[in-house]
Amino acid sequence: MQLSSLRIDWTRNETLVPLVIIAFCALAAFSDPSFLSIPTLTDLLRGSIVLGIFAVAAMLVLISGGIDVSFTAVAAFTMYSTAMLLNTLAPDLPWYAAIGIGMAMGAALGSINGILIVGFGLPTLIVTLGTLSIFRGFMLTFIGQKQITTLPPGMREFGRMMMIRGTNPDGSFYSLPWAFAATVGVIVVTWFILHKTMLGRSIFAIGGSLESARRIGINVRATQFFIYVYVGALAGLAGIIHSSMARVANPFDLVGLELSVIAAVVLGGARLTGGHGTLTGTLLGVALIVLVRNSLVVIGVPATWQMVVIGLLILIGTGLPAWQAKRAAARAA
């Protein structure tokens, strides 16, 4: 392993995924030269805003050795409840207040996960599977089922704020909303936490080996609790952004996306066993999934093949490293 560190390691996902992305773009550009254009890029970036925040959140949990499938329900709960709350109580609050309320609500829901996981020592998959049903069921039973088409003015304004705006040669518009900056912010903050703070080292340590982390004096419980609260807050943010951009709060949105998000993160090299995962890899994984979703038709594959392609990508993206690891283990034995 050490000897080959200077060479390119073809089985690493951080190498593999960009190669697939480049091959995909080359193919797309070959069959449709207008693919390489700013509108394609802004479409890609816009498609990555919500997915990117989700992926960063899911990655953090995977690094710590857990798995969270409830974040989409947290996001749906938050966006719907916040929109309803602001509409009925305080329609005049500005957009940043809506985001603040959303993140606080998401953090509160995340702390429920945290209490169940840390307080009772329950397996993370089971807890979040349960809370996924609970959050969604609670929202649809007690808060509402009808979509809110008139968002509070703050959220509407946020959805309309554009960083980049332009016109295509054919007269159609392209744009990139400021919400993209939120995703960048999430990436920067998470990078800082993971790589510049003791907390981040603790998260990696817990994922590597819970027992070792405990023995070197890491406060495992506090760290785990922080992770689920932070992930909840990120999910809340993603929810508010999703509904602001869609200009509607549909309680049936988002839930069902959780496994695709985890797939994107794993595609980017994070491991389910914990301790491994990079922001670069995660974002590349997201880019690949969004690219396949948006532009499969461009390379001549009918849109109905989208699921098959994503499924195969996941199998190849996780299969190659797994196969390599198994061969290495067999050689060592």
Partner: peptide
């Protein structure tokens, strides 16, 4: 992954 392929 295979579930996506089968559904796909």
């Amino acid at each position: 992954g295979s579930g996506l392929v089968f559904s796909g």
